[in-house]
């Protein structure tokens, strides 16, 4: 299914949540909606899911206006998680699938393989409330995809998952993509978006500021970054000529170059003072693009991403 948003606008009281937003999500891609908190990501997703109505604009599935029968072919994981606590895993999966029009018999055959894959098979006949929070999230992910939807919409998918489960879910998403499913997800964790997405749309204060395939967007920004790995004290680097800004990662530095910067000069200065293990002229990371586009304080974003990854 091809999903299109045409000139969507939504106003809450006085605040414009989403403004003149148009998106085209092609079939079979992983599409990321990125943006800081409060940018309008969740509002956009809720409008796609027919939970709230846009004030103006259209949402189309395969060129037709969205209604419940189209939404049956969509799997949706809301930002705030929750399931029926008193039901068993089997019951809750069956019920959610049935509500999406997937008959009990069909679901019955799919439950065990999925629970197996997620490491939840031993809890199949236990109540949801007996699971840990992370397990409940994985369960809810199963309920989102159990009816084999064409489009899977995941709001802040990775928040609250540990790295092992993040990898597990990423693997599943890649499999689903290979099966031809369209995956749309929102996040403010750029590293994850960068690794997964074919297409990116960045929203800021309700308006679209970036849209396109990952490579298109990166080439827009040109090769204006240096990825540097050094041994020794690199505190002097930000003072070097041609260095516009510096982002420190755990094992390397990303240097944003000023215009007309002399990369050879920077390299020679580095070699003078520290041991250089890697020196690469590269495309900017999504994170760099995000920071420079959103003009947000990187520190603030770090905190958010950190909090979300706990």
């Amino acid at each position: 299914m091809h999903l299109e948003l045409e000139n969507i606008r939504k106003v809450y009281d006085q605040k414009v949540a989403v403004d003149r937003l148009s998106l085209s999500v092609p079939r079979g891609v992983i599409y990321g909606i990125i943006g800081p908190n409060g940018a309008g990501k969740t509002t956009t997703i809720r409008m796609i899911m027919n939970i709230i109505a846009p004030d103006s604009g259209n949402i189309m599935f395969d060129g037709k206006k969205a209604d419940i029968s189209f939404l049956e072919r969509v799997g949706y994981l809301p930002e705030e998680r929750g399931l029926y606590k008193k039901m068993t895993l089997r019951q809750v999966i069956t019920y959610m699938a049935e509500l999406k029009g997937c008959p009990r018999k069909t679901t019955a055959g799919r439950i065990s393989p999925w629970l197996e894959k997620m490491g939840l098979i031993e809890y199949i006949d236990q109540k949801v409330e007996e699971l840990s929070k992370g397990m409940q999230q994985k369960l809810q992910f199963i309920t989102t995809i159990i009816h084999e939807p064409d489009i899977i919409i995941l709001d802040e998918l990775f928040s609250g998952l540990d790295p092992i489960n993040v990898e597990l879910i990423k693997g599943i998403l890649m499999d689903l993509k290979r099966e031809g499913k369209t995956i749309l997800f929102s996040t403010h964790v750029m590293e994850q978006a960068e690794k997964l997405c074919d297409n990116i749309c960045m929203i800021l204060n309700g308006t679209k500021v970036l849209d396109g395939t990952m490579s298109e967007i990166k080439s827009q920004f040109g090769k204006n970054s240096l990825h540097v790995e050094i041994k020794g004290d690199g505190s002097f680097i930000s003072e070097l000529p041609g260095v516009a800004s510096l982002t420190e990662y755990s094992n390397y530095l990303e240097i944003k170059l000023a215009e007309n910067a002399n990369t050879q000069l920077i390299l020679s200065k580095l070699v003078e003072k520290v041991e250089v293990r890697r020196f690469e002229i590269a495309e900017p990371s999504l994170y760099e693009i995000f920071i420079s586009t959103a003009k947000v304080d990187p520190k603030e974003l770090e905190d958010e991403a950190g909090a979300a990854n706990v």
Binding site: R46, M49, N50, I51, I68, L71, E72, V74, Y76, P78, E80, R81, G82, L83, Y84, K85, M96, L99, K100, T143, T144
Partner: peptide, 10 residues
């Protein structure tokens, strides 16, 4: 529990 959001899209 916000199950409602999933329900009303079904």
């Amino acid at each position: 529990s916000r199950i409602m959001e999933v329900l009303v899209s079904s």
